[in-house]
């Protein structure tokens, strides 16, 4: 798919247990700020999933702030995609892109 552009700050998710709050801002290049209760064990994996999803959506410039409360990977993916779509100002998800 054509790359998605971060136009505005987008937020998705909550700070409840088992969830994650993602904040995406305009930025030059990709930068990930991670704050997780399981950073030691899963920090690398969380960053990897974030990079993978951004790549899938063609996002090349974004600051992604991840405030993780022990979210499963599927929750992380869902929240991140929601935040990207919100920040790009798009309402309809291209479902065919997602496995």
């Amino acid at each position: 798919m054509e790359g998605m552009k971060i136009l505005d700050t987008g937020i998705a998710g909550t700070l409840e247990s088992s969830d994650v709050m993602i904040t995406i801002k305009k930025h030059s290049g990709v930068e990930i700020e991670l704050n997780s209760i399981v950073e030691k064990q899963f920090g690398r994996q969380i960053r990897e999933v974030v990079r993978q999803v951004l790549e899938q959506l063609g996002v090349k410039d974004a600051l992604v702030v991840v405030q993780d409360k022990g979210a499963l990977e599927c929750v992380l993916r869902a929240r991140l995609i929601t935040a990207v779509y919100r920040s790009a100002g798009l309402a309809e998800v291209q479902w065919e892109v997602f496995a």
Binding site: A12, A78, R79, I81, T82, R86, V93, W95
Partner: peptide
């Protein structure tokens, strides 16, 4: 939008 994606990925995973 958020719930739809969350349920989607949860069911898939």
């Amino acid at each position: 939008d958020a719930a739809r994606l969350l349920v989607y990925y949860s069911l898939r995973t």
